Amino acid sequence: MHSSEDIAPGSDLTPRLGAIDITTIWHVINAGDKYLFSDDEELADPAREFFKLWYAQNVDLDSFTPDLATTTFARQLALPCHFFDHPEAFAAITKWLAYNCVGHIQESVPVKFKFVHLHLCPPDFVGPVNHARGSLKTTLHRGLWNRVGDLLKKGSNGIACAHWAETAGRYFGALTKLEVYPLELSFSKNSINTLLGWLGDFHLNNKIIGCYSCKADWNREVKSAVYRTRGHFDGLCIDCMDKSKIKNGRNDEDYWEKLGAVDGRFDKDCRIRHADNTWWVSWCGRDEHRRKLMDEKRAQERQE
């Protein structure tokens, strides 16, 4: 094993990293699992440094396209990013998967890798990354629905003007024309990024001069929904996941009380910066504790 100095950027090894495929990386993980790299910092540190260099050389998310081969490769990267404790990479890969996958997201094992026992525990990947994908749908639905839902409520109660039904119909018609609506159908067949891309073509020429609700800028409402959805999830945070786990032999049953927001942020001690939504999805402890911590944070914000 090379030392971290031997594999520093600019060394002779760096150009050769491109020749190392993902299957080899999984074999390194298998060796690390067998010889307990995580328990030996003299082995773990250079292994982590090696993977960081390999990742930088071989993974360019900006060039990723949501085809089958690329999606499979991204799913194969989840375990290495977690095993080698690369928080930036793990967040980036899980974010890409949540936004670009269609249907249920799972890990993928390289075809030539035969040690099937290696995988992430469901609470470390499958559960939270699919939770994240579902939350993106919820965020998008809320953004597309709230204003028109308010219009429908007012119209059905006789509060809106006579144009409310026509306005709502034209709005839903424009969404349906883009094949985005209803989300229950479109979400099961398309990735969130695909739907957001289609919504970029949304346009409703609102000629109706009626009440305040009918005269809403529906183009702006849709753009706002797209913007909020794109910024909703920053990828899974390894640090939040690790801190919130109930570890074997832990004597402090109230450990979770020490995991509240610091200076209004849940990522104060994390190696990546992220919003509350990422903390929420990354939480691996009991749901009731997560809710209490979020309630405490919101209560503090109301007092400020």
Rank of each mutant, 00 (worst) to 15 (best):
F202C: 01
G197E: 15
Y181V: 11
N157H: 08
P128T: 05
V126K: 15
I20V: 11
K95H: 05
R302L: 01
N193I: 01
G173E: 13
D217R: 00
S63T: 12
E301H: 06
V28H: 06
K215V: 00
S282Y: 08
F125P: 10
N58T: 06
W279I: 09
I272Y: 09
Y55Q: 09
P182H: 06
T138V: 09
S63D: 06
D124S: 14
R265D: 03
K297G: 07
S191V: 03
Y227Q: 14
D40T: 13
N190K: 15
K207I: 00
W279C: 05
D252E: 09
E49I: 08
A168M: 11
S11D: 09
G173N: 13
A8V: 04
D6M: 15
T70L: 07
W54V: 03
R298G: 00
R230A: 04
K114C: 01
P87L: 06
L185E: 15
L53D: 01
Y227N: 11
H163Y: 07
N58Q: 13
H141G: 08
Y181E: 13
Q57C: 11
P46W: 07
K268L: 12
C284H: 07
S156D: 00
N277H: 12
E41Q: 12
F50V: 13
A44E: 13
T14K: 15
N190C: 08
W54A: 06
D295A: 14
I22F: 10
D276K: 11
R286P: 02
